[in-house]
Design a binder for these strands. Structure first.
Length: 323
DNA sequence: CATCAGGGCCCTG
DNA sequence: CAGGGCCCTGAT
């Protein structure tokens, strides 16, 4: 595996729209643990690719909920161009939705007597993706039809073989390979990493991305339905993977259309304190309350319960998530 | 030891 | 558009 040490740094500030919740935005409790980022209260690390170059990022909270300010330190080797700094800033703002206008959503949240305490606790949280489309696609594919432990195994096997290790700020952070990296890699090589039938998805997707068949920037600008149609064309992308990508990469807030069986069980407990409510009913009820912010609203409640899980024992949840 | 479902998707009929 | 098959793993 390739390792690079990044010693030089350049810093700049970003002022997210207000209100802003730093930890809720940069750390998602519901996500599986990976080697791609690190977090502790008020601080966050990851790698970011701009063009073909990799940089290390440290992001620190320097503001308050109502007066947001974050400091970004970019780690690099040799030199860095002003244009690259600009692109990094643009990407961070997009991926973490730092310019979001959530006034309307927050107004809806205030009217929800039942879950208002949760919305208030996470006020200013954004739905975010640390990764670009290709990278999140890889993660989404190893999530498919697998439990958390298996997903982590597959991801680590892929990173150990094709990833890049960055050393900066006394951290070791991994980055996902470029699509082109898998060009000479056979399906069997990938299968040897015990990723099963996902090998053919990853192989095909990598080829499509390497050949620039997917335009991420354009996808970001499309409306939800059109973006969804485009994503579903990708090999290995079905309704659930499209939902993840639409929500996290495209910041479409109203993607609460597909509910997987395991999610249905958790939603039933969260919203009704019952073991199994029909998926259609869950969907209708949420859409009635939150309209075009359906997925965002669910995201707040979802992240909150996984956050609480760190400190308290939530028996019904432990039973459902199956590590 | 065997069998099976799982944090989906593709392909076929 | 319904249903079988796919990879591997841990649970039973």
């Amino acid at each position: 595996m390739k390792t690079s040490v990044l010693k030089n740094t350049k810093e700049f500030l970003i002022f997210p729209s207000s209100p802003f919740h730093f930890d809720g935005t940069f750390h998602k409790s519901s996500h599986f643990l990976d080697k791609l980022s690190d977090w502790k209260t008020g601080k966050y690390w990851q790698a970011i690719r701009i063009g073909k170059r990799l940089f290390g990022l440290k992001v620190e909270n320097k503001g308050e909920i109502q007066k947001p300010k974050i400091k970004v330190s970019v780690f690099y080797d040799k030199n860095i161009f002003e244009k690259e700094i600009e692109n990094i800033k643009y990407e961070i703002i997009w991926r973490f939705d730092l310019n979001a206008n959530l006034k309307e959503f927050n107004k809806l949240a205030k009217q929800d007597r039942r879950f208002y305490p949760i919305f208030k606790k996470w006020l200013g949280m954004r739905n975010s993706s640390a990764h670009n489309l290709y990278e999140l696609l890889i993660i989404a594919v190893v999530l498919q039809n697998a439990t958390v432990r298996r997903t982590v195994q597959m991801m680590n096997a892929l990173l150990d073989n094709y990833g890049i290790k960055l050393k900066f700020d006394n951290k070791e952070i991994f980055a996902i390979w470029l699509p082109n990296r898998l060009k000479g890699v056979s399906k069997q090589n990938l299968r040897d990493l015990k990723i099963g039938y996902r090998a053919k998805f990853i192989k095909q997707l990598s080829q499509d991305f390497a050949e620039n068949k997917v335009d991420e920037q354009k996808l970001r600008s499309l409306d939800q339905e059109k973006a969804k149609q485009e994503l579903l064309k990708l090999y290995g992308v079905g309704p659930e993977t499209a939902r993840i990508l639409l929500f996290e990469v495209c910041h479409q807030y109203n993607t609460f259309d597909h509910i997987a069986p395991w999610q249905q069980k958790i939603y039933s407990q969260l919203f009704y304190k019952k073991s199994l409510i029909p998926a259609e009913k869950i969907k209708d009820d949420i859409k009635k309350l939150y309209g075009k912010y359906s997925m965002l609203a669910v995201h707040y409640i979802w992240e909150d319960v996984f956050w609480r899980r760190k400190n308290e024992k939530i028996d019904w949840l432990e039973k459902e998530i199956r590590l």
